[in-house]
Design a protein around this nucleic acid. Structure first.
Lengths: 114, 114
DNA sequence: CTCAGTGTTCGATGGCCATCGTACAGTGCT
DNA sequence: AGCACTGTACGATGGCCATCGAACACTGAG
């Protein structure tokens, strides 16, 4: 029925951590990984909620990918929303930037990769 | 004689990497460590060349400390200069900030530690 | 209901890294 | 020369983490 009101989701929604509750060390550790940097950049190149987890092109299996998204959620970098079987993603640009000014911009700059 | 000209140092000078040659991932990995963050903060709280390696109050032995300074050098964060038996340190504020704007400021902010 | 697709969880594994103790090399002082 | 101090190099160790395969749960479609 494509019902938006009677959600009745029989699946635990993803647990999020707000950037304001994230220690600096956690944020830096989350960003200090090539796969996660790639995920963030891919995410930034598309509109919010445009990509589900399986749409990301990274050289790891589903299990590892799921793990990486968990790390990104805990670091306040990514928000997830369930829609059907898919789990849609959004980069928490403004909130994360308010907590760690400039850090996300730095990560998204293509020239610092060398 | 406390000669400044006839240095004749029989010791290999420390190898440095300029921040411009440092990939983002290297910089983030270097900063994603509690001991190194402490070293950087201690360094920032004193004038340039004021501290030798042994002066830092970090809960690790000499060997580990030496390793950490090596990592910081490779990440373009610290410059070292030999003076006698001591090895003096300087935080490469401007150069590093030119390459990764805001990253060092973020690391030095005391409130993001939580 | 069955099936294909999506994502999480679990246990196991391999590798990287922070740390330590020790030995060693310079340096300056007596 | 002898000594105390500073820092590095080396080998070993322990722990953490990224990854995988497999099993499982949920979803929407046929």
């Amino acid at each position: 029925m494509t019902d938006q009101v009677e959600g009745a989701s029989h699946r635990p929604p993803p647990v999020h951590t707000h950037p304001d509750d994230v220690p600096l060390l956690t944020a830096l550790s989350a960003l200090a990984d090539p796969v996660r940097i790639q995920l963030i950049r891919d995410l930034a190149s598309r509109p919010d909620w445009a990509l589900s987890c399986s749409n990301f092109d990274v050289p790891v299996g589903r299990a590892a990918k799921s793990h990486h998204f968990s790390v990104l959620r805990d670091a306040g970098l990514v928000e997830q929303r369930d829609q059907g079987a898919k789990r849609l993603n959004r980069l928490r640009r403004e909130e994360f930037d308010a907590r760690f000014p400039g850090l996300l911009d730095l990560t998204l700059r293509p020239d610092v990769t060398e």
